[in-house]
Design a protein around this nucleic acid. Structure first.
Lengths: 175, 175
DNA sequence: TGGAGCATGTAATGAGTTACATGATTGG
DNA sequence: CCAATCATGTAACTCATTACATGCTCCA
């Protein structure tokens, strides 16, 4: 049974924590993985339903508000493991800002400056948040696992900020 | 009329080059934008059809193999401009390698080493390609536009490689 | 005791990928 | 002249986002 990355992530979370409802899973996915993997609630429900049909998870008794807690089955465990060890395809890069810049010749210079400033601020904020986490994590003793992904984020955001600071908007719009 | 980023990219390409078929557009998108925006052929046809229905592009006479060259209309131009000046949402980050690492405790150390090595090689190759392009571009006089996106790629790939080189696989798997 | 807000899920739509079909060109 | 390859597009499917509905809880 093959699962996609999102479904696999849910299995991984369930495996760590024991039974959980779709809502709780969506929330935990956001908290724990959200910095490098987006998952929406609707996806969670879809994947859980599909996995239940395939026997990878099992729904428990519905509680209040029709909340069903799901558990990983043995088949689910092995699907998870298979995914975990499978090849990583070439990654799909999509950077909206660069797409804009590809058409910068038709973009109003003032608006360009705004867009760039907004994006830069966003990245700066993320970097700051990550750096805080790193400091806090080192004191409190977060897992190596978390530290490694955090450091990726920090490296990435620093690189992006450096790139921003080397941007010559004049040259881009003026010609 | 609002268009999504992919449709807008097609408008932008058409605008630059004049009439082109879906096939040609898909190819040019790959060549010119592929480093930071993926577009498949099927998407191209779907978006062209939708834009034709909405009056943003106009199909010309079908030639051999039912090839229809599309042209941007005035409405298409203004949709393009509107997109170009619209807000850039928060970007969606999805890094498959980090998702794997989030579950590294269940991953076989040997397999982890393999996966990491593969990914590292992929990034190294891309960096090398970009650096070549940069050298060539400077000699030949590529546009500032192209140089800017190229430099993003270079900054990104360098940061990622540095991160790879700081990875302690032992600590990750051993504990 | 009622209404604000949280918890829970479904439906509808949009975007992206994979697999398929087939007509033209062209080099051997 | 025919087999390989390129050009062109469609169909089917999977994945992702947005919008909607509604039941609980709790405190003012």
């Amino acid at each position: 049974m093959e699962v996609n990355a999102t479904a696999a992530a849910l299995l991984g979370l369930l495996r760590r924590s024991g039974p959980a409802t779709g809502y709780a899973l969506a929330q935990r996915a956001q908290e724990e993985l959200g910095d490098y993997w987006t998952v929406t609630r609707s996806q969670v429900y879809r994947e859980l339903a599909a996995m239940a049909a395939a026997g990878l998870v099992q729904a428990g008794e519905a509680g209040a508000r029709d909340a069903r807690p799901y558990t990983v089955t043995d088949a689910g465990l092995s699907a998870f493991t298979a995914w975990l060890h499978s090849d990583l395809g070439a990654d799909v890069v999509r950077i909206p800002l660069l797409l804009r810049l590809a058409f910068v010749d038709a973009l109003d210079p003032t608006r360009l400056a705004e867009l760039v400033a907004e994006q830069r601020a966003q990245h700066a904020a993320r970097l700051a948040a990550y750096e805080d986490l790193e400091r806090a994590g080192i004191e409190v003793g977060g897992t190596d696992r978390d530290l490694v992904t955090l450091r990726f984020g920090i490296a990435y955001e620093r690189a992006v900020l450096t790139w921003f600071d080397g941007l010559d908007l004049q040259a881009l719009t003026g010609g």
